[in-house]
Amino acid sequence: MRQLGRIYLLAILFFLYTPILVMMAMGFNESQLYELPFSFSTRWYVALMDNQQLLKAGMNSIIIAVITAVIATCLGTMASIALSRRTFRGKSLLQLLLLPPIAIPWLITGTAMLVFFYWSGIGRGMHALLIGHVALAIPYVVLVVGTGFNTIRADLEEAAMSLGSTPIHAFFAVTLPLLFPSILGAALFAFAVSLDQFVISYFLATPGYSTLPVQIYSAIRKGFTPEINAISTLLLLGSMAAILIFARFAKPGDVSDKR
């Protein structure tokens, strides 16, 4: 039985990884039309270096992801302090309000943002993408940091205060260092959420300002070359690295409310 279970898990892994590996391999295949037999070549990666449109979009993606990670981590951590350590009325309602960005299909959220940003004059482009990405990342940050709070004993902070520390000092001297791995994990997580976000970006991008996934999508729709495989490979490796580092800081099983 035990053997059968392991073979089954290997089969599932095969199903999950085969298409990804095939896609990556095709980025190293000489043929423009993805023809086999396979002949190794790095020409598509070389071509990528000259593709200003994809490079610019890639740069935009990274910049947006970094800014999103910084803003979402600061805001989300602050909210998490209040939600984890303080008691007040309406707390469960506020926790419920964290769900829409995660639970409502992004198609609905994305089109709603498009309508509102157009109507209110906020418009589309980089700032609009940032507003959207941060909103999507905040709930994950609150969740990850909140999980971190649960593993820290509240009485450590109280002990510091009873020894004469002010609440603010106790927080920065005791709680924050203990919380640091969770906060760092949350930041990486927010980075990955933003880097992989396509739907929201798709509706808020402009012809002059778009991100890598939006460019990849329009390339897939219009006809593509293995250059798309090459850039996709780099994108996947980037987000996988972020998530694997995250997994070192927070246990992956803890983040149950993801989509």
């Binding site: 396509f198 990849i216 999508y217 987000s239 993801k258």
Partner: peptide
């Protein structure tokens, strides 16, 4: 794989 780009 879940945390990598769905589009890709």
């Amino acid at each position: 794989p879940f945390w990598t780009n769905g589009l890709v």
